[in-house]
Amino acid sequence: MRPFSYERATDAAGAAKAAAEHPNAKFIAGGTNLLDLMKLEIEHPAHLIDIGRLPLAAIEDTADGGLRIGAMVTNSRLAADERVRARYPVLVQAIVAGGSGQLRNKATTGGNLLQRTRCAYFYDTTKPCNKRLPGSGCSALEGLNRNSAILGASQACIATHPSDMAVALSILDAQVEVVSDNSRTIPLEDLHRLPGDTPHIETSLSAGELITAVVLPPPPSGGQVYRKVRDRASYAAGLASVAVAGGRMAFGAVAHKPWRAHLAEAVLAGGGSPSEAIAAELAPARSNGRNQFKIDLLHRLVPVAVETARSQGRGA
């Protein structure tokens, strides 16, 4: 870890301003990802802005029947909220599939969205990685890429986004509220980027923009399901995951961002079968060798998840 300066923010606008003014500043909330990355010298912010005490920990009903989730709401609290459990079960299932109990107690809603990839080469500072050191190359391309992306990847990066929660939020059409000089609201789907030639730029946020809330519109009709496949039963990154809510679908652990499966949704909306839907979505999927199984896995998993959601929808 390298020396850094530290301040504790007292209000969101002030935190955003401080981030804009300090070169190489980072917000720290739960710290479940950033502290590890700093200890391993993967992240080396010059200045930390602690947003841990900002009053952004409320879950409020919105006028249209949705919810506004403060950025500092912990994953544990969000998954335990009665309204979330009743209206957005896919979000609850996704959250409890992520990390461990201890991590979820510390991890926040905003921080969860901004966590960084689990690609092993990203974590080893002695290896090339375009995400960590732009221009150094991608070690995973021809390396141990069992956990790598099959959708939307580039020659520069085949890392995946690790969040389970974000996959559920993407099919719930969540909006992300951001405070800065020009406060704005970003559709969650537009928050994360594909790697392209700049895999080190992971989101559409600029320096000095602070996520303050995630807003959920009312839930879509129909059943909701989150299915995550992993090497062990808890505290393991996904090999692939599927979120289904009504006619919407998204995948986790297969792309640089939560992968909203618009092609599959269109096939389902047009009366196609789940198998046809997943086939359409995976037509452009590419494997690098060891991650080929993820394509097979999604082909098998999606129809089951869709059927489970449908039967739940019928039951409800």
Binding site: S100, Y123, A236
Partner: peptide, 12 residues
């Protein structure tokens, strides 16, 4: 390449 206990998986 797995150099920590989030990547080297022992049973939980």
């Amino acid at each position: 390449i797995n150099q920590d206990m989030a990547a080297y998986l022992v049973p939980v």
